[in-house]
Nucleic acid binder design. Structure first.
Lengths: 239, 239, 239, 239
DNA sequence: CAATAACCGAGACGGTACGTCTTGTCTTGCG
DNA sequence: CGCAAGACAAGACGTACCGTCTCGGTTATTG
């Protein structure tokens, strides 16, 4: 009997405690970047030292509480039951605080995605051949298929089919960049002649992964990924 | 001047005219089958004469008006702006009439999908080799990438990522069946030994198509489909 | 320790029970007249029998629950703490149901005022001399100074000082009519030559009453009213 | 083109200029006395030079900007549209600066009222008979019926009907004192035997003025005041 | 050829969430 | 320490849809 509805929106005066899998140190280095909420970005445009000269600063605790609450609620009750009011209540935050920094629940999830992807989908700094590609693809498959992060990406990909603004955000702010980066790394690691060839290889590997996750709804399967890589990466046996 | 919002929900007193691409004759043969709303299906199961003793029967005009209104509104304003009230108003139908026969807007779209797929994704009755597969895949790619029908499938696939009930409906009531049928036809047409092998070929072709449509958001491209088929069908025995 | 805040807005699924001092029979004859919400008024403009040909009718229970809840909350917590949400919760009614029939809390109070004044400020059908005026003025003073009704009139008079729309509603929809009626009756009862003379007498009596209630904040005092009447009504002793 | 809403709350960086009808010299002599926010009053009580040992003193410019902004906004957009945030923005002052010195917008208006009444409703220092009363009543009627000041008194009288705290402030801090002073002067000027008799005369004159202003909403009319005075002052011994 | 169900339009209703607005408190840095 | 700036928790606003529920009016069998 899966829980099908969200919980009561009773206040839950959350404080910095229980900020689960994202700790403040990580975030302080990267405050809400992707959606353009970033104030330092603005200031860098206007002046050198700038930022905001006076007044209170954004509450880091609130930001993290919101991101984590959204993540938790998404995993527990699903995207449809995810509401701004619910997130606010679960995070122990006022609704207006959310609207001040995010335009929609999609925006919040997007920030979560960027945060998670930043750590989970990194390429090694010094490429060292096809093994890097194998490792990356395994990491990608795991990211797509496992709990908090994959659920977010899945939801955003789904919602992007329904809402052009989400599609714009997801592609313009994440997928395009991700793909460009992946293509470049694949080209380097496999010593390919040009980006187009790298893109073909990348697609040949990623398309079945997306297909499995979004269309076939099959769970993450390491063996499947290995077989796929064997077939596409010059048929060199996986070990 | 792009229309960015839905229109007023001003009444649009039901017009059987302007029922565009679905005419009554087509539909009368297949009334609202997929979601189990169908009364004739029920009655045929329970008895021959009985069914419903007295009273008027379901209005075919209303059913078509709803299906078409939903389709039109989806194409014009998108899934997010699609509401039961909006459909009712656009169809010139009472809200309750919709709720009597469908459970949600997803249900309505699903009926549309089944209707459209029934004609667009048919296999020839007498299989005649790989050319059938090529033709079918081309038809499928077109279906996925072109206006009313593809938009519906795309929306439902997207929504299935967000809502388990939609996923259940879409897979249990459409995709699984479609896939089974496709596998069988591919096996026959390509003279493959077993279904697993046919499934591998099918996935190898469909995965890139779904990937392009859902993840890369590239438009339908006949050349791409041909290249894909050349690559996957010529060296069928992939080992 | 006076209660200074409103109670929790916990649902209070009120049903027709506890509809205090206004019973359905009274109201059925006069549904929400003053603010122009009345549908029969519309229909009388369009046709003879009319009203609304089909569909569900306005819920009398909801209307009474709202009016009484507003009254109760006003008396208990004051005008400032009176909110549409609070009324809805206390009446066990959805917010939208209130907005469907009233524009604001002022509108609701106004309906209450009209309702109460209709019974409390009636003149006898057959005028019989100065005694009628005395009786009426006493009734008016009591109305102004006692609980539910006076509180409403006081609040509306106060709010009319702050908001032109309230002033327009209160004067155009109630006070002007009341005054015209009062002038006419005073003229008849005192056998005065013209309306102007009657207005002077009426103002001479009412001004001190309003002054006491609104400016001096003195409680209702029968002796004061009698003395006032003695002075203004031809100095005939009050007995 | 009547402006029906308040303007944007765009910052209006404090301008000491355009402080209209209250100049600094007037105010310096009487800073924010009535609500007890006054620091100089405190300091004058504690010592002569000392007052507040360190830190900056209250900004006179800010105080005046707030008072005038409140007045202007009240006159232009009405009491309902008057908000602390709006006043702060219009005055080019931080919200907290307002909250530091006043408890509510009513408090601000009250300070304005006391300020204006101090000059407009003064009695001559040396009473010289009934003519003084006539002059005072004319001044009072003008005060009640004309722009900035009358609007404030009207608003506060109205709000006092809705909010006990406002009533307490207005009566305890202004009206009672005003009335006591008026009664004393009337008694002296008309050579009446006791205060009660003076109060009766005063009420007989003021009640119709308040009635006209608050209930009948008639504009200020010198002829009406004269007629009223003729009637009430000539037959002073009303028995 | 009535009676009698069921359909259908209309739309009121109890709800939930939306996104906005204002309140009163607070925090941060400048002067 | 006052002040400008403004983030924050709180909570009401008025709107939009949801899904349920009467209402009458309209068909279309079926007794």
């Amino acid at each position: 009997m899966a829980p099908t509805g969200p919980p009561d929106h009773r206040a839950n005066p959350v404080r910095t405690a229980r900020l689960a899998h994202k700790d403040a140190s990580t975030i302080a280095a990267q405050p809400s970047r992707a959606t353009g909420n970033d104030r330092s970005a603005d200031s860098s445009a206007t002046g050198s030292t700038g930022s905001r000269s006076t007044g209170s600063r954004r509450s880091e605790a609130a930001r993290l509480a919101v991101l984590n609450a959204a993540d938790d609620l998404l995993v527990e009750y699903g995207f449809e039951a995810l509401t701004i009011e619910g997130i606010a209540a679960a995070a122990g935050v006022a609704k207006q605080t959310i609207y001040r920094w995010w335009k929609s629940k999609v925006d919040i999830l997007f920030d979560n995605l960027v945060l998670d992807a930043g750590t989970a989908l990194a390429w090694p700094e010094h490429p060292s051949g096809p093994a890097d590609v194998r490792a990356y693809v395994h990491r990608f498959a795991a990211f797509l298929g496992e709990e908090p992060a994959g659920r977010v990406l899945q939801a955003l990909l789904g919602h992007a089919q329904l809402d052009p603004r989400t599609a714009e955000l997801l592609h313009g702010g994440f997928l395009d960049e991700l793909r460009a980066r992946d293509v470049a790394h694949v080209r380097t690691c496999l010593a390919l002649a040009d980006d187009d060839r790298a893109a073909v290889v990348l697609d040949a590997v990623l398309a079945p992964l997306y297909h499995r996750a979004l269309v076939l709804r099959r769970p993450h399967d390491t063996a499947f990924v290995d077989a796929l890589l064997d077939r596409q990466l010059d048929r060199q046996p996986a070990r």
